[in-house]
Design a protein around this nucleic acid. Structure first.
Length: 213
DNA sequence: CATAGGATTTGCT
DNA sequence: GCAAATCCTATGC
């Protein structure tokens, strides 16, 4: 079987989440994405992971959100229709992947912070340049997750409902039980005033070894 | 194991 | 010009 045929076959057995799944408040989407599967496909192959850690970022009122600057070239996807990717560069060298939430015109996105590799582990190790890393560390952190899955700013604005290049899937059996979900303050946003740094908008699965540290 | 410092580009003040 | 939704390595206990 050629790689093209393999990719086609796996797309046929996956079921990309529909637009409506994303058209909800950011905190709700952050919670619902736990347990979902993220898929990527490029010239190097197919890879997938189970999302185990997320963070919600709101609109201009959220002092920790990029959208606090309003609608700019960078934040445009956050104000766009739900179910698209928002990929940005942070600290001048790392790229991070968000999933756009809320209705069009209302900014909001969920940062994908960690995933458990499910498929394409060796490909992830190659992309990361860390051939000896344990599986559970390969996507344990937002920049690691994006790099392991081959996500860069080329995918900024990508439509996640199409089922190619980058998409998400969730079968009800994989949905996270409330008893295994924890929440706490978002990471790296200490600068945010007016209590926005303390809001418990980070969510993770307590029984996963792949959450960031 | 814990902590500290550096990397390196972009975007907003 | 400054600081950033991070990660890696080195050093010290």
């Amino acid at each position: 079987m050629t790689s093209r045929a393999a990719a086609t076959a796996s797309q046929q057995i996956t079921d990309p989440l529909p637009r409506g799944f994303y058209a909800v408040p950011v905190v709700e989407l952050a919670r619902r994405l736990l347990g979902a599967t993220i898929w990527t496909e490029d010239g190097d192959g197919l890879s997938a992971g189970r999302i185990v850690e997320t963070e919600a970022y709101g609109g201009p009122e959220d002092r920790a959100s990029h959208a606090r600057a309003g609608l700019t070239r960078r934040t445009a996807p956050m104000f766009g229709p739900p179910g698209h990717a928002y990929v940005y560069l942070v600290y001048g060298m790392h790229e991070c992947l968000n999933v756009v939430a809320e209705e069009e015109g209302r900014a909001g996105a969920v940062l994908l912070r960690a995933a458990e590799p499910l498929l394409g582990v060796e490909l992830m190790r190659r992309r990361r340049g860390r051939p000896a890393d344990p599986v559970d560390r390969l996507a344990a952190g937002p920049a690691r997750l994006a790099q392991a899955l081959g996500v860069s700013r080329r995918l900024d604005g990508h439509d996640l409902t199409l089922g190619h290049r980058l998409w998400l899937e969730l079968d009800t059996a994989a949905e996270a039980a409330d008893s295994r979900v924890a929440s706490g303050p978002r990471i790296g946003v200490a600068y945010a005033a007016d209590g926005w740094a303390e809001r418990p908008w980070r969510f993770w699965l307590t029984d996963s070894q792949a959450v960031s540290r």
